[in-house]
Structure formats: structure tokens, C-alpha cells
Simulated scan of single mutants.
Amino acid sequence: MNKRTITERDLRFLHTFCAAAEAGGFAAAEGRLHMTKATISRQIKEVEENLGVTLCSRGPQGFELTEAGKTALKYAKEALDALDRIVPQLDAMRGVISGKLRIGITDNLLGNPSAKISQALTRLKKEAPEVEFSLYTLTTHELVESLRTRRLDIIIKGIHPGQEIKSFNYTKLFGEKHFICYSPQDNCEVSEMSLVFREKHPFVEDAIANYGFKVGPVVSGMESVATLISTGLFAGILPEQYSAMLSSVFPLEQIPDTPEYNVNHFAVTNADYPLTPASEAFVKLLIEEHQGVE
């Protein structure tokens, strides 16, 4: 029986396989890899032939990992990650910070004067020019899953009490105020407004339970909340800086005698894996830039 070995060529093609698996198919991975579907398929097929297993099924029902593919994905990601760490770790030994840094954030943070993410990125570029960072704006669920599966190194997001995940580390950075808003227009009465509903949102649940609001249309994302508020027919909960920006577009006010909600934003990392030198440097800069910020 021939002993199967992993070649340098296999490692390159395993990277292709991991990207296709994370993207959910060949077509979705084309842009990420800058390859055609035919090239992606050919590379994965070659790895399958060398390993002697089928890694994924392709057909009318779409892309799906086999059990062997799930196992290969787990260990391939660990191996590729270890290889990616070699040069940055050696660079760190001689005082140079290098490597890739993948950062994820939630939407609409730029207008918050307490958020100093831009300042931290500016310092990172100046103080560690060898670091190649990328920045992604994702939903809360996407951020958590990307950090859990190591597609991101650091995420910055608001965390409500009780939402902490045991396998994550949290570093508090800044706070954010939220208000129950409406758009005063001729065709509406505040007392008759229902509240735009976002599932599993603590502020929305509190407003409905304790302030007499009825459940309004179900939405996802702040842009959808703001759009419904702009009709003058619904109330909704928005961050202070986002509502201030929108007030120049349409009339927008806080509903009198309603609470002010606060949520803290954290830099979050995966505690199951050691931080890279680039991640450590960026967390340190975030802490320094947010000192004294509430």
C-alpha cells in the first residue's frame, strides 16, 4: 500500500478547498480566490485523488462537504494557520510585527465619537507597516461565526449583559447610547405607534415589556429600522450617532418619557487560539486609544 503524503502543491490546493468550503461553493469562492470555477474544481479534484477520498459533492443540490471533507477542512485550516504563523513569529523575535490581520466590525460605528477604531488603525499602519490588515463589516451573527471559525482574528461589537461566549476574550473599548425614536409627521400619533421589532434584541424586548409598545414589523439591520421610522408610522430604537446623522434627512426625535439604553462595545478574540503578534499589537493600540473613553 502506497503511503499518502501531503506535498507543497497539495497545501496550495487545500487552501483552495478551505476557501471554497467557507464560501459555500465554487461560484462563491471565485471572487475570493480570483480563480474560475473550473480551476477551483480541478485543484480540489487533484487533492481528492492524492488523499484517496471525496471531500465535497457537487451537483444539482449544490456544494456540500462529505464527512471526510469536514475532517479535512478542520485539520487543513489548522495546518495552514500554523504555516501562516511561522514568519510573523520569527519576525516578532527580532522586533518586527508582521502577518495578516483580519478585523470585523458592526455597521454604523464611524459616527460614534467614542469609537477610536480609525485612530488605532492609523497607528497600526505607522507602527507596524509590515502588517497586512483587512476590515469587514458584518452582521452580529456573521461576526461571531467568523471569529469562532477563525475567518477573523478580532471583532469589535456591542455586547449586552449575558451575551458573552465562554470561549471568547473581551476587552471593553467604548459605550453607545440608544434611544426610542420616531419621525414627527402630520399623519401619525405617537401613542398609536408600534415598535419596529428586532428578534432577540434586549432593548426592543424591554421597551415592549415595560413601556407599553406593541410589536411592529419584523426587520433585520438598523437601515431597515430607520426606513420604517421615516414613514412616520412606527417607532424604533437607534444608536445616538446614527439618529443624529439621519435627522438631517428626515424629522427624527426621541419619544418623550422613554428610556436611554446603553451598550458597551468590546474587542473580542477567540480564547481557544493564541493571538498573533499582529493581533496583540492591534488590541494594545485599541486599549490605548480608548483610555478614558466611556
Rank of each mutant, 00 (worst) to 15 (best):
A38G: 05
R85P: 00
F174C: 07
S230C: 07
L135K: 08
V283R: 01
A72T: 13
H178Y: 14
V96Q: 03
Q61R: 15
S134Q: 10
L124Q: 03
P251V: 11
L143W: 03
V144Q: 13
E289R: 07
A68I: 06
Q291R: 15
I229S: 06
R123P: 00
S98P: 06
L90S: 12
E8N: 15
E240H: 15
L152F: 11
D107E: 15
I155V: 14
T66V: 09
C56H: 15
L275Y: 02
Q163H: 09
L124P: 01
N169F: 08
A226N: 07
L14S: 01
F282N: 01
P161D: 10
E223I: 06
S243A: 15
M222A: 09
P113V: 13
D272I: 00
K3N: 07
T231H: 13
G52Y: 05
R58N: 11
G292P: 13
H265P: 11
V268M: 00
N264R: 07
S134M: 02
R94M: 11
E78K: 10
Y261F: 13
A68D: 10
N262P: 00
R4S: 09
H141P: 00
T39C: 01
A20L: 03
V196T: 14
K70C: 02
N262L: 13
G99D: 05
T140S: 09
S279A: 15
A244G: 04
S41W: 06
L55I: 14
S118C: 10
N187G: 08
M222R: 00
I86E: 00
V218T: 13
V53N: 10
T71N: 12
S118Q: 11
G69K: 02
E46P: 00
